[in-house]
Amino acid sequence: MDFQRSVCSFRDGMCYCSWTCGFPYVRHRPALQLVAVPRFQGAPLYRSYLITSVHNRDIQSWLDLRGKTFAYSDPDSNSGFLYPQFAMQEQGVEPYKWFRRGFFTWSHRNVVEAVASGLADAGAVDGYVWETLTQIHPELTSQTRVVLKSPEFGHPPIVAGTRYEPEALANVQRALLDMERSPEGQHLLQTLNLDGFIPGDASLYDSVEHMMMAVKPHPRP
């Protein structure tokens, strides 16, 4: 299972409904509406993990990453880019100066691979993805160690453009919410390592919006 969370251009009308990260959701909030939020381990919440190699005992905090290489997942990811930048800033350091080199791997799974292979000394990964990978690719995650877990954020939601027809939207929403009540749905949820879906609330993503406002953008990762 590879989580490729495409950020679609809703304004172009090419895509009406998408599973996206909380970061792009809050960034484009006026043009989007919430359809459903996945429940993971009982709550519509997840965390960002700071991971390093299982052999690396030196890294215990963000400050230990000075002069190290760091793998982000994607510039549009909350857990894989926004939060680590925010966390570093909270510690009083600027990431692009603090790291020897930071780079994007374009997916959460690739972050785990980059850390496991030694390409990056550490990386920021979606906690939900890491936990799911421990079930399906334990040989990969066993090479990594979780250093820190972030506070909980609203889980990446299912969103739709505001121009979406209400009836159709209601049908999609009902299908998602009813998924856990049918065997096929349960099977699908099991594959996705989710408990089910809830309608959700925009306030779930307030902390993400707060971080977005706080982080000073920089052209280099």
């Binding site: 290489t69 020897r100 292979s117 030694g118 390409l119």
Partner: peptide, 13 residues
């Protein structure tokens, strides 16, 4: 910049 043996040839070194 990168290598197929990242542990022997650490990036940005």
């Amino acid at each position: 910049f990168a290598s197929n043996q990242p542990k022997r040839y650490p990036t940005a070194l």
